[in-house]
């Protein structure tokens, strides 16, 4: 149920079709259509935003992130519906994926700078998806946790808060 909700949620914001969603969730087409329609009834702003992304992409040939990084979508006016559909999904997806990338990149730079300035021995060791991992000397842990959380959460000012979950342990499994 939670997985369904999550798939629908992500699928819909990336412009998944009723067909795509029914395939993904193994549910009848009518049900997936009801989910999508229901979603848009409740989140009219999301629908507006998605339409606006596609319109902009058609006009400009590209979309961009909050930081101005562009993604060109030459297929947005294609006559081939499959190709065009892919470009439309990218028009919605790219600003989100790209902004998420920009944000974590900025956070990495900020954290590294502060670690250096603070004379910490802590080292950044992995970056994957939306996650950063550190090798922290025990005595630095409280200070580093605070530093990392604050730097990540303030990497970009949004209308909704950015929230960072933290975990720690002897290895990645325990920490994650």
């Amino acid at each position: 149920m939670r997985r369904k909700a999550k798939t629908a949620n992500f699928g819909i914001i990336y412009g998944i079709s009723a067909f795509g969603l029914s395939e993904r969730l193994n549910i009848p087409r009518s049900e997936s259509k009801a989910i999508i329609d229901g979603y848009f009834d409740n989140f009219a702003g999301v629908k507006r935003y998605m339409d606006e992304c596609i319109r902009l992409a058609r006009e400009e040939g590209s979309v961009q992130t909050l930081f101005g990084r562009k993604r060109y979508l030459p297929d947005i006016n294609s006559r081939n519906a499959v190709v065009r559909g892919m470009a439309e999904r990218n028009a919605i997806n790219a600003p989100i994926q790209g902004t998420a990338a920009d944000i974590i990149k900025k956070a990495m730079v900020d954290i590294q700078r502060q670690l250096k300035q603070g004379g910490f021995q802590t080292q950044m060791i992995l970056q994957v998806h939306d996650e950063l991992n550190f090798d922290v000397p025990k005595e630095e842990l409280p200070a580093v946790k605070k530093l990392v959380k604050e730097a990540m959460e303030s990497a970009c000012q949004l209308k909704v808060p950015l929230v960072v979950d933290m975990g720690e342990g002897r290895n990645w499994l325990e920490a994650h």
Partner: peptide, 14 residues
């Protein structure tokens, strides 16, 4: 200590 910091639901927030 292995410390992991993960943005929660960043795509939905965006």
């Amino acid at each position: 200590v292995f410390l992991s910091a993960d943005y929660s639901q960043v795509e939905l927030r965006l």
